[in-house]
Design a binder for these strands. Structure first.
Length: 202
DNA sequence: TTGTGTTTTATTGCCTCC
DNA sequence: GGAGGCAATAAAACACAA
């Protein structure tokens, strides 16, 4: 269609009146996708063509879409932040419980060597915590690059204690936790290929 | 007044569903 | 295949600074 034809075809275009807009908005709040019958009723009531009413709702939905997306994003982010917070507190609780377990096992007569060198554990804890906290400061959560490097078996005789492994940051955790954590990392790895120079070799 | 950016109405083309 | 929805886009109407 030429520009001239378009211009002549649109020459009668005019903005809807405040009353028309108000009525359309009111309807939109109740039903953003009104049925044909409703659109015909509205058109008759407002002195518009049914096609104009249909187009108005179409455009109105398009305008509201970014706002809806923003609302959904905020809800999801709030949920996510809450989960991160819960995860952190559960991680601490888990650590405390595993330390308790460690002490109990020590009390049972195990030597310190079987549980690894405490000094090295503390040093590794500080280094890894720094890296994880700086992986994604804007989200306040660590990413999962090179996860496999961050897991070491706590005991040389791991066969005796397959239920416990040591995270590289010094936290103790169960193998079940490790597996679930690895699964969650699959989502992150797509957007963070490689270790970005941040991974830490142990 | 005019140039420019934004908003609103309308068209087009494609897709999905029945 | 027709109806209706959506994304992309055109173009008129409007707002506003200079």
């Amino acid at each position: 269609m030429s520009n001239i034809n378009k211009a002549s075809k649109n020459s009668s275009r005019q903005r809807f009146s405040d009353e028309q807009i108000k009525s359309l908005e009111t309807t939109f709040e109740v039903e953003s996708r009104p049925e044909l019958r409703m659109k015909q009723h509205l058109a008759k009531k407002l002195g518009l063509q049914p096609r104009q009413v249909a187009i108005w709702f179409q455009n109105r939905r398009a305008r509201s879409k970014p706002k809806e997306l923003e609302r959904d994003y905020n809800v999801l982010k709030a949920d996510y932040d809450k989960l991160v917070s819960q995860f952190e507190s559960m991680k601490k609780e888990n650590q405390a419980l595993l330390i308790q377990l460690q002490k109990l096992k020590q009390a049972e007569g195990r030597s310190d060597e079987q549980f690894g060198n405490e000094n090295m554990k503390i040093e590794t804890l500080e280094q890894t915590r720094f890296l994880l906290e700086n992986d994604s400061p804007e989200l306040g959560v660590p990413l999962c690059n090179d996860f496999s490097r961050k897991v070491d078996y706590l005991w040389d005789d791991a066969d005796d204690h397959p239920e416990l492994v040591q995270m590289a940051d010094g936290y103790l955790t169960s193998t079940d936790n490790i597996h679930s954590f690895e699964s969650s990392c699959l989502m992150d790895n797509s957007s963070h290929s490689g270790n970005g120079g941040q991974a830490f070799n142990f």
